[in-house]
Each structure stands twice: as C-alpha cells, then as structure tokens.
Design a protein around this nucleic acid. Sequence first.
DNA 1: CTCCTCCCTTTTTTT
DNA 2: AAGGGAGGAG
Length: 762
Amino acid sequence: MQPSFLSNLNGVQLQAVENTDGPVMVLAGAGSGKTRVLTFRVAYLIHKGVDPHNILALTFTNKAAKEMKERIYQLIGDSKAHSVWMGTFHSVFARILKMESEKLNYPHDFSIYDTDDSKSVLKSVVRDFNFDEKVYNTGHLLNRISSAKMNLIDPEAYKADPEIQSQDRLAKKPLIWQIYQEYWNRCKRSAAMDFDDLLFNINLLLHKYPEILEKYQNRFKYVLVDEYQDTNFAQYLIMKKLAAQHQNICVVGDDAQSIYAFRGANIQNILNFSKDYPGAQVFKLEQNYRSTKRIVEAANSVILNNQSQLHKTVWTENDGGEPISLLKASNETDEALLVANSVFHSKMTYHLKNSDFAILYRTNAQSRALEDALRKMNIAYRVYGGMSFYKRKEVKDLLAYFRLVVNSADNEAFFRVVNYPVRGIGNTTINKLSVLASEREWPVWKIVSEIDSIQTGFNSGTIKRLKDFKELILHYQQQLNIVDAYDLAQKIAAGSGLIKALFEDRSPEGITRYENIESVLNGIRTFQDEFIAENEGKMPTMSDFLQMVSLFSNMDESDDDDDRLSLMTVHSAKGLEFPYVFITGLEENLFPSSMSMSSRAEIEEERRLFYVAITRAMSKLTLSYADTRYRWGDLNFCTPSRFLEEIDSSLLDIPRKFSQNKGFQRSLPLKSKSESPSTNYNHYNKKEVQAPVFSHPFSDEDVANAADLATGQKVEHARFGEGVICFIEGSGQNRKATVDFKGVGRKQLVLKFARLKIVIPD
DNA sequence: CTCCTCCCTTTTTTT
DNA sequence: AAGGGAGGAG
C-alpha cells in the first residue's frame, strides 16, 4: 500500500520517488522540489522496510543533511531516520577512513588539514627548498596539487605526466612536482590528510582492497547524491564503485546550477550519467513551485545565453508577481543604503520579518558596506561565510592544542602552539627543531619527546622549556580516555595559558577573542549532547569533535531563532530560498568576476551563478549596481553587468522619474562616463531603442588577427593597456596568449575575445 | 627571545 | 583597508 505522505507529490516527483531500484537521474530545475524528492525517496525506502544503515545520502552541506533527517523523521516518525548515512562526501568518508585507517597506514586519529594548514605546509616546503616564494606561491601550488589529487594523480604520476609537466614548464613553475612530493611526505609524516586526501584515500582503499569495497557495497545498498552536477572526478569514481554491485544509485542535479567547476566539479558527470549506467531512468522536474512567473522568466531568459546546457523548460503556475526592480547607485555605500532602504520600506509596507530577506553578492568583501547600512537602519542581519568562526586565530590556536593532544605527530599544530602563549621557545629553537625532524624524517614531536637521547646542541634552559611543553601535552594525552571531551577542552584552555593570555587583553578585540574561546567550549558541549543523542548514548571523543569541526562548512553554522536578514555570497546561497532577494554589485569585473572573463566556459559559469542567484527569490527580486566601487583601497569605475541586459526588459520595473531627494531612488539612465565610452545602458527605453551593445574601443580593422600574433609581440588591450606576449598556446577558437602588461602583470587571454591591437614601435 | 614598526599582499567562489 | 610577515632594536 502506498504511504499517505506520497500524496503530496506531483506526478514526476512521485515516479522519481517510487522507482527505487536501478539507476535513476533526476534533472531538477530550480525550485522544482528536488530536496523534496530526495527526502521522500529516503523516507519511502525506510517505509518499504530498507534498513536505514543501508542507505547512503550525500548532500552538499552538513546542514542540508541534518535538515533532511529531520524532515524524514517528520514524514515517517521513525527514529531510525538518524541511522541513515547522511552528510557531505568529506564528512561521511572521513568517518569511514577513520574506521579503516590502519589499512592505509594512518593512525585512527589522523588530523584533517584545512586550506590554511595546507598552505602553511607548502610555504615551509618552498622555503626549505630555497625556491622563489613569488613564483611558487602557495595559492597556485595548492590549486595544482588539489586538482591533481581530485583526478587521482599522486606525486609519482604527476611527475610522469607529460601534459602536466609541460603546463608547469609553460607557467615557468617546472618544479611543482618536487613540492608536491615533499608536501605529500610531510602530510603523511604529520599523520594528516587534507580535504582532497579524504577522497583520494577512499578511492585508494576501495581500489586496493576488494574485500573492503565489497563490504561497503553491501552496506550501502541504496545511494543518493544531491547536487550531482558539482561532483568532481574523485567523488564520481567513489559513487561508481559503491553502486557497481547493486546499481541502486539516484543522483539529483541541475546542469544549469553547476557553479563549482573552478573547484574541479565536472559537469560531464551529470551529462554522462545515462552512458555510465545503461538503462538509467531519467526524470525531469520542470515545474517551479518557488518563484513568481516573472522571476522564473527572468532566470530562463538569462540562462538561454549559455550554449552548453541540457534542454529543460522550467515553468510555473504561480502568479506573475511583482516586476523585478533595478537599483542604480553612485558607489557601494550608496548601493548599500538603497538596498537597506528598500528592505526597510518593504518590511514596513508588507509587515515582513527580517528573515524574509536575503542580500547576495559575488565576493565576501562586499558584505562590509551592506552591514554598515543595515546597522544604520536597525535591521538585524547575519553574515554567512567569510571568516568562519572556526578559522579565527584564537579558535584555531585552541583547536591546535586539541589536535596536538589527539595526534602529536601533527606538525602544523605543534608549530602553532609550541610558543603560544609565549614560553620562551623562539624562532631559532623552532627552526633547529624543524631541521632535526626533517633529517630524521620524524614528526617534530618525536624530537621533543626523545630530546635526552639526541644531540641537539640546545642549551639547558631551552631543553627545560621544551620538556615542560612536552609534559604539558602528555598530561592531557593521559586524560584523553578518562575525562570527556568538554572537560578536557576546558582543562586545556586553562592549563595551556591561552585563556589567561586572552583574558589579560582588555581591548574590545581581546574581549571578543576571549568570548570566542568560551563559544568553542560551549560548542563542544552542544556537540557532545547531540552526539550522545544520535549514537545511543555513546560519548564522543576529542577526535570526533575535531573531525566535525574540520569539515564544518560556513553554511553549517546553526541558525539561532533570532529574526535576521541573511547576507551571503551567491555560492553560499545555493539550495536556499527567500521571499525577498537582492542581488548586489551587478557590474562587469565583479559579477561576472574579472577572474572569469577569459573564456566562454568561465563566463557561462558566471552566468549559471547569476541564474542560481535569481532563482533563490520567491516573490520579489531586486538587482543593484554601482557606478564606482573601492577595490584594494582605490576607486574603480564600473560598467553595469552584461547579465542585466540578458533579462527581458518587460520583466523589469519601470523606474520613477529622476529624483535625487530621499533615499528611495530607483534606477536611472546611466550616462556613459566610464572608460567604456559607448556604454548606453537604458532598460526602460529598450522598446524604442535598439538593445544597447557594449561596443569596443578598438575598431574591427585595428584588432589583430589571432594568427598574426607571436611571442614577443607588443600589443595593446582595451582594459589592461600595453603589454608583451610571453607565450601562445592552443589553436583556433581556443588560442590563448599570456601577456605581460605594464603595471598590471600577467594575464592569460583568449584571443578570440581579447581583441588585441598590435603596437607598432615608432 | 620578544616586541615593535613598516611594508606588502590580498579578493572569486568552498568541502 | 587590514592583517600578516619581515626585519631591526632592546
């Protein structure tokens, strides 16, 4: 018999839920009830008698997993809902790696390095190798290494891969393989895995040990993946392996919402699903339940400009709704005030809550002006993302103590706290320790703990201080299995001197830092209570807490009950919805980002990002842009985003007449005054006037033919000015040049779009 | 060894 | 605009 909760689904949704066996792909347009399908599917499986332990559901954030569990519980009222394996790829597989750690030669309590830890290791490698830190900057190195790992390329393979090697040589960074190798060794020596290692090692485990693969294939009889369009190769392969036996895999996604290619997500995963799983059933959810007609149409009109996409028609039965508003501001402060004013106005007119509003932006740095304006208007807000709580210095310091106690091999943790609070162990000592450890290929901790039997050359005072530190850590290690995580954390915070050091700083920042330490301790207590409730009374260890914290994403922070407006990046907003949405900073070089303008694929990803932003809105969407904006401390002139033109003008609000008084100003015709002289941005006249075109300052005959350009050629670019071509790669449409611009630096340009002019020397 | 000052980079998005 | 790192003085 069909359970009654299924009556809440439409026809396609129901099919997607009821076809539980065999491969299923659900292509879900924005707001079409994708989470609903996933939730109901899991509930239905349990209802049918599938053991929750046999279900694996991977979501994009821990928070989404948690919410899904709660909804399943509401649907079927079965506390077994908690036993479903549900979480992010990283958190679920970290848990499994912990159980199987000895197979891969890691201790049970290995550390997980976050991006900062990884960069810090890389920096020390580059220094120890005496490489130029400008050439081998950590950000780029981590990108290279990260994308290698997510394609399952270890240092050996990296070194042996001719294509990778030629890329690195072209980028004038031919020695990355050495750095990768050493980074790899150091992480291993520290018994640490970075984010990518978690996926790499799971693949290794499932590949190397057929019996383990079989074990998990049998455990996870039903697997579900949310946001499948954002999975990378490593994740794709894990799912493929796990599902190979029973084929009960259900993936849900939307190619139009793929926004993580920059992080290695491979859109082919979703495009090739039917090939990977012959006989897969495909369900398309095209009815949007979230947004008004105007919003849906605006989103559709924007995404139509992308060439590569699966065919899908998103439609809605909802009302037409209000027109989309456009706010034009003179600068970012002004923009923030206009937005805050508009929020205030709507709130008063329609009696709305703060939590009905979200303000979205492309980069975290944009939040500041908005925060100021909201404070002025007395609107309570909450900033998601940006500096996550667990990334703050004082918090990381405390966590480093925890890590060192749990895994004393963790060098990053060691160096972080060995002299904080200050205990007379300075740079000279630390460098020496580091050298001694490298020579022996030991963790630094081992040097310190065996200091009596090693010829170190330290004076007796230094040795005494190191021994005191050793005793401090050992003391807590002995208590690991005796007291609970919360008690231990409290003891460490006090005994390490951290609390005292922070307490003595009575500046406002110092007080905040002190309070943050308190919050961490409270956080452990909360974690402990929840863990006990979910694990039939089992106590969590300090290591459990650390694992949770390391894989905590900025979206996972729990919402309190306060009524607050949300401020977040568009990326963070994925999967969420709000009645009133503002998308701010719609300017060229910001949205789309200046970093993503060199190829069609990048622009298309930015456009999908804009699509995601639009489709967050339920009843009212407001867009805004500014004429000028501060960036890196200096003033920039901005042109409105090309995406604004892609919205059908009939959906936009007709602005009121020019009025400079009061704060509630609508969009005004833009006088072309920025460096792009022909920019004529004039939405409401569109019906009479031809759609404006962003014309280019260089006329067609001035622009060099891509084939005529060669290395060493002096060229001119409309935005970057004069420069010299360093090298050229690719051919035809994909021909790219790297150009060294005077005062701007190196840029990689796709010649088809760059419109370079040859500079003739006089 | 520690503290202070000055200079330099950073900002695209995140598990 | 701001925080972190390097380098110098005490």
